[in-house]
Design a protein around this nucleic acid. Sequence first.
DNA 1: CTGCTAGGCTTTTTT
DNA 2: AGCCTAGCAG
Length: 777
Amino acid sequence: MDYLKGLNDAQYDAVTTLEGPLMVLAGAGSGKTRVLTMRIAHLITNLVDPFNILALTFTNKAAKEMKERIAKVVGESEAKSLWMGTFHSVFARILRAEAHYLGFPSNFTIYDSQDSLNVIKKVMKELNIDSDLYKPKKVQARISTYKNNLITVKAYFNNPELIEADERTNMKHIGIIYQKYVEQCYRNGAMDFDDLLLKTNELLTRFPEVLAKYQDRFRYILVDEYQDTNHSQYLIVKALASKFENICVVGDDAQSIYSFRGANIYNILNFKKDYPDAKTVSLEQNYRSTQNIVNAANVVISKNVQQFKKNVFSDNEEGEKLKVYRALSDADEANFVAGNIWELHHSQQRKFTDFAILYRTNSQTRAFEDALRRKNIPYRVYGGLSFYQRKEVKDLIAYLRLLVNENDSEALFRVINYPARGIGETTQNKLIVFADSQNISVSQVLNNLGFYAPQLGLNNGILTKLSDFWSMIKAFQILLKTENVYQVAMEVAKRSGLIKFLKDDQTPEGISRVENVQELMNSMQGFIEEQHQLEEGDPSLSNFLENIALSADTQKDKEDDGTDKVSLMTIHLSKGLEFPVVHLVGLEENLFPSFMSSSTREELEEERRLFYVALTRAEKQAFFTYAVSRFQWGKITDAEPSRFLSEVDAEYLEFINPAVESRFVNHSGLKSNIFDDAPIEARSFRKLDPKKKIERTDSEPKIRKNLKPVSTARIINPSGESSQDIEVGDKVRHDRFGVGEVIFLDGTDPQNIKAKVKFQHEGEKNLILKFAKLTKI
DNA sequence: CTGCTAGGCTTTTTT
DNA sequence: AGCCTAGCAG
């Protein structure tokens, strides 16, 4: 039982309490993951069959990592039969097995948010509902909320309060949209993310024999990140655990950051009510961070009204103060961060993997990518628009989805005229209207085209095109019976004309689209190999599709080649991770806290928890940055520092721009005075004479002027202006290729000079001077 | 039916 | 800045 050594008392308690309900309140950095893994390992060494253990995590990544760690303790073969994964993936699997109970095909398609939004838009169009009044995104959010609270269409229409509420907000058609949307999904043989939970609930409630089966199977249940479960998930867990009550939930109310998708913090706050006999263990010692970091985080989170009393502390060194950098622009901010990383990489011999750049929104990524690239710092962006959400990738996937589930009309109409084959909107609408009128799916119409043709009102030319398209799909389906996923996809890409269509576009974007499709093919081959290695591997197309529907991070894993890279990600994605040095950037009002979340106390508290999560990722050092103005939404916007900065006690902070520090200390109560918008040169004068503040607005145009060079000067190349005279023999630096020497120049037209450069690591390259971003060194 | 352009609109976080 | 749509020419 080596693994029990080195646990503190609370951890030991949590690991060894195997029976009965248990709630582990795990403060940030308190060894939560360790406790969870050890607990599972302990169950298995105490002869609990892994087959009877269900562990629900928040991300697939967390599941994968935990499984690997467990395998190290109890061995590969034992770990294999564990059920571990996200709610969505675990219950998708169960739903496939039991789909017939619910009248769904077992090969149902899983719609991601994008797909479901498309369906909602179409439904609204059919209903002739003004999408200006009913923002599809809002409608989608509303429907999602209903589903997550188990309010089915029927329940909705039986609940006058809900209907009234929607009427009050001028959305009285929500109900009918909801209904049509659900019907359409059903007809398409598709479930959206929320359905995976909702239908599981339906399955367990309506069919006691199914419930009994899974209750017996999952005798020991563990739920990680319990504070982020929604009502629907809560009910599933409760139902499954109700027989044996061996349920262990782990979480931290201070880190609940997903209420926007229905997470209900009361699930954890009320655990004791659900299980009066529940034992509670609090893990309060933070092993991760310095005292300064932990204390600063505590101060901020204490501003929240809604929380458990907890005393998270650190016995680590006091550590450095948290540094604050005030940037002039987003580009300046990014340059500072990149420079800082470079600095620390050298002065402290830190690896690049030691660094994380955390931001509130994905759109902030770009500036940092630019800055890092310019300094030749390797980095990796997590999240963002996933590979599988790219248009060209989704298009090919839509073909594949159609092969597996031909009722999926979302997929069908995505590809029926892509690449263009003369089946336009008019034709498509006729098909939809007709199929609707007969209450059948479009694929059924296409399957019996000859029979329905007279009623469709289409000319012979179009009918031929339709039947050609459909026989192509049918041929693919037959192929699927004998060939593997990769071969089928290849055939689809070729025969559908997709590849040719993409290849015709020789712009850089077009080329990268082809590469992305290639990449998708590669990932299929990877998938096949992987599945063959697994004992119960399933290399089928439907399994492939399920994998990519439920894991936004499949492409991340692939990129995870263990090389030394700086991590860039949203704060949400950083939950559960830790880094020696964290840069928390974009600390500005309306960005963080988000302008979408500053209206109610609840929203603001969630933003504050988000800040808490971000800060507690840091082990040794934390840097805060904010920009005084930011290029965003197509224009330069002035920004004020985030309120969270002023919520951190000054004793934990150190300002890197000295002028700002004195201001901060002097007027720490008056936010508008703490940070000002003036350019640096002006600042030193003003500091002495506060009266000059009146001129503040006058100085704004100046900032703009000053700003531009900062953000663009280094991106835009001296385009042929020959302002940068590069000659043979010069030492130069290139963004991507590093340092090299110019060995040959060719051409007289200044717009078209070619340079042959021998790079230290990359060898010789021919570059067009105009485009290559070469800097003389 | 397709392909192009100009103009309008909306900007969070994710399984 | 990017995405989507409407409108128009071929």
